[in-house]
């Protein structure tokens, strides 16, 4: 059953200059959909359009059939659409505990402590660093906090923009393993990545975005062997 439906979405930063040019896809509960593509293809822009940070000029984004048109980002998260941006994805000047407290503040009061406890159980590194300022965390811990912050509200859709960026291969593996666990708990995951190998290893389905359009769709790791895919990544190590 599809949770998120994206239909011929056109989006960009300035009127008349579309970056995402008519993208359609669906995303189901308990599924990881990987979005690959060369630099500047519009991956981040598409992710922001789903999250509500970039305005959609035509097309629709629907959550369980209900249109999110005109809904501000701060309301989308209340409806269960969460986003982990690539940069600036934690409040660096605030403690780990405050970052999580802010995240759960939109939940009913009675649920907040339980959700924070659940996040600290899922990310044990964060439990030890609760009083630390997020800006002082290591790259890996910081990424875990960014994911925990988004996941704290038990979203139905979780979009992540290049969560592996800047991490060591070992940490990339750890992040991907977490995403698997999150997927298995029933969350629908849209994973934007440059690290095709790591992302496709956890992907249920994948799409390649080029110049704002979906150029290719496939199923997971087998895509790595497809010459058409390699062509789209000309000059990049896949």
């Amino acid at each position: 059953m599809s949770v998120l439906t994206v239909e011929t979405v056109v989006a960009g930063y300035e009127p008349g200059l579309p970056i995402v040019r008519g993208v359609s896809f669906t995303l189901s509960a308990g599924e990881i959909l990987v979005l690959l593509g060369p630099n500047g293809a519009g991956k981040s822009t598409l992710a922001k359009a789903v999250a509500g940070l970039v305005t959609i000029s035509s097309g629709t984004v629907r959550l369980r059939g209900v249109s999110l048109a005109g809904m501000a980002a701060h309301d989308r998260i209340r409806h269960g659409v969460a986003f982990v941006p690539q940069t600036g994805n934690v409040f660096a000047g605030l403690t780990v505990a405050d970052n999580l407290a802010i995240a759960v503040n939109i939940l009913p009061r009675a649920e907040r402590a339980g959700r924070i406890a659940a996040m600290l159980a899922l990310f044990p590194d964060l439990a030890a660093a609760r009083r630390a300022r997020a800006g002082l965390l290591s790259g890996g811990q910081r990424q875990m906090l960014a994911i925990a912050r988004a996941l704290a509200v038990a979203p139905s859709v979780l979009t992540l923009d290049e969560p592996s960026a800047g991490l060591s291969p070992k940490l990339v593996g750890a992040v991907m393993q977490k995403l698997r666990e999150i997927r298995d708990s029933g969350v629908a995951i849209l994973l934007v990545e440059q690290n095709a190998r790591a992302a496709l290893a956890v992907a249920d389905r994948a799409m390649i975005l080029a110049e704002g359009r979906i150029a290719h769709e496939g199923h997971g790791a087998s895509m790595l062997d497809d010459p058409a895919v390699a062509g789209l990544y000309l000059g990049r190590r896949v």
Binding site: A51, G52, L53, A72, A73, H74, D75, I77, R78, A82, F83, P85, G88, N89, V90, F91, A92, G93, L94, D98, A101, I102, A103, N105, I106, R149, A150, V153
Partner: peptide
């Protein structure tokens, strides 16, 4: 909570929006 929201927004308005502020 209001104070935390104010500090968070001052630091990173986009992330604040994403956090429901």
């Amino acid at each position: 909570a209001l104070g935390r929201a104010m500090r968070a927004t001052s630091e990173n308005p986009d992330l604040a929006r994403l956090a429901g502020i």
